[in-house]
């Protein structure tokens, strides 16, 4: 078991799920098909990778002030990730997670895109600012 501690407060409830790790920045607006949770932009993840129910790990969020609306719509459609983990979430993604009711944690000493691996089982606890990896 590997435990990562964040230096910042998180958002939302405790969540368990499998990791989907992106080695790059992520935008709900620019990269995803909201209806399926799959990636429209080529090269971000493996073909057919889907964020639905996953704990999405990425370096940071990139542009897209529409992210709040899109993540809430994904929750309604059942295609949203279970939680979001970033090295640096940024304000737009914090606002989006708060509005959509998706758990979020960022601000770790380690690079989360390096220490967490694809399909690894994770337990995310925003209240205690920690992730436990299988």
């Amino acid at each position: 078991m590997n435990k990562l501690k964040s230096s910042k407060p998180g958002l939302g409830a405790a969540v368990e799920g499998k990791a989907l790790v992106l080695k790059c920045a992520f935008s709900a607006r620019y990269d995803l098909d909201v209806k399926t949770g799959k990636f429209l932009r080529p090269g971000l993840a493996t073909e057919d990778a889907c964020v639905a129910g996953k704990i999405l790990i990425a370096d940071r969020a990139k542009g897209g002030v529409a992210s709040s609306w899109l993540l809430r719509e994904m929750v309604r459609l059942g295609t949203a990730p279970a939680a979001l983990v970033f090295n640096n979430a940024g304000p737009v993604m914090v606002q989006a997670a708060a509005f959509a009711g998706i758990s979020l944690l960022d601000g770790f000493e380690e690079d989360v895109t390096e220490v967490l691996t694809q399909d690894q089982q994770l337990w995310l606890d925003p209240a205690n600012r920690e992730i436990v990896a299988e």
């Binding site: 909201v34 529409a66 609306w69 809430r72 719509e73 309604r76």
Partner: peptide
């Protein structure tokens, strides 16, 4: 306020 139909979808408009 940024709130377009494309981004909001049914969930945002319901809200």
């Amino acid at each position: 306020f940024m709130a377009d139909t494309d981004a909001m979808g049914e969930a945002g408009i319901n809200f």
